[in-house]
Simulated assay, not measured.
Amino acid sequence: METNPYAAPGAVVDDAYVYNGAELEVLKASRWQRLGAAIIDGLAVGICVMPLSFYVLQGWASRNPALTQSHAAMPNFVSGPVAAVSGVIVLGLIIINCVLLHRNGQTIGKRALSIKVVRKDGSRVPLTRFIFLRFLPVELFRFIPFVGGIIGLVDTLMIFGSERRCMHDLIADTIVIED
């Protein structure tokens, strides 16, 4: 018996489970879980960036005569290679978070606290939606003096609303649920 090489595959594939609205409401992550995940993510980035930041500050302080005359000179305790390794680690952290977001809708902090980001209908969020709708709009506004601080504060405080969704969740049409 010959098989047709141009025939459609015959594998049986189950559809991905999609939550209904009531299930998602029950599964929503608590404000404390979201805060904890944000703290873990912030600490991870902060620790990785710290040597690189000190290196940049050392260079700036050594080239600013007003600072070196009025204050004790900043000690040079972070070398160029250490700063370079710090930069590579930060890049690695970004890549790890992007892979986790793409696969599971989680960052390192969200994974640690067993929560994840899904679309409002319960489906998976594509990485492009994370970057261009959930992250970039709010982050770009934060660079605007005065207005950026207000938008960042409003984005954060919206978690205390009845829907427990931040501004970036509303823009990207996402919610954070327990995994």
Score class of each variant (00 low, 15 high):
126 P>R: 01
136 L>G: 05
31 R>G: 02
26 V>G: 10
132 F>W: 09
139 E>F: 06
16 A>V: 07
111 R>M: 12
179 D>L: 02
47 I>V: 15
12 V>R: 13
151 I>F: 14
33 Q>C: 03
160 F>T: 12
156 T>A: 13
81 P>E: 04
118 V>E: 00
103 R>I: 00
94 I>R: 03
19 Y>P: 11
62 S>T: 10
11 A>K: 09
179 D>R: 08
63 R>H: 10
81 P>C: 04
18 V>Y: 15
66 A>K: 01
133 L>Y: 11
48 C>T: 07
63 R>C: 03
100 L>M: 14
92 G>W: 05
98 C>K: 00
15 D>C: 01
140 L>Y: 02
169 D>G: 08
66 A>P: 00
18 V>K: 15
69 Q>D: 15
149 G>N: 13
139 E>L: 04
30 S>V: 08
131 I>Q: 12
65 P>H: 12
97 N>A: 00
121 D>P: 01
92 G>Y: 08
158 M>Q: 13
106 Q>N: 07
138 V>T: 10
127 L>E: 00
155 D>Q: 09
49 V>D: 08
13 V>K: 11
143 F>L: 13
80 G>R: 11
176 V>R: 01
143 F>Y: 10
1 M>C: 04
70 S>W: 07
147 V>F: 15
27 L>D: 10
162 S>A: 14
168 H>K: 05
139 E>W: 04
137 P>D: 06
20 N>E: 13
80 G>Y: 08
176 V>L: 04
135 F>T: 00
4 N>Q: 03
91 L>S: 14
178 E>T: 13
171 I>C: 14
109 G>A: 06
158 M>K: 12
106 Q>R: 05
104 N>K: 13
88 V>D: 14
40 I>T: 09
56 V>Y: 15
84 A>T: 15
129 R>I: 02
162 S>F: 02
55 Y>N: 03
117 V>D: 00
106 Q>F: 01
97 N>K: 03
129 R>D: 14
104 N>C: 02
169 D>P: 05
72 A>K: 15
39 I>G: 09
105 G>V: 00
28 K>S: 14
3 T>P: 03
87 G>A: 09
39 I>H: 07
152 G>Y: 02
78 V>A: 00
61 A>P: 10
46 G>V: 04
80 G>L: 09
71 H>N: 13
150 I>Y: 12
84 A>K: 07
148 G>N: 09
20 N>T: 11
117 V>A: 03
122 G>N: 07
108 I>C: 09
115 I>Q: 01
17 Y>I: 02
19 Y>K: 05
87 G>H: 09
161 G>M: 04
38 A>K: 05
60 W>C: 07
120 K>I: 12
64 N>H: 13
68 T>A: 13
9 P>K: 05
159 I>C: 11
83 A>W: 10
107 T>Y: 11
73 A>C: 04
104 N>Y: 12
55 Y>M: 03
29 A>P: 06
16 A>Y: 07
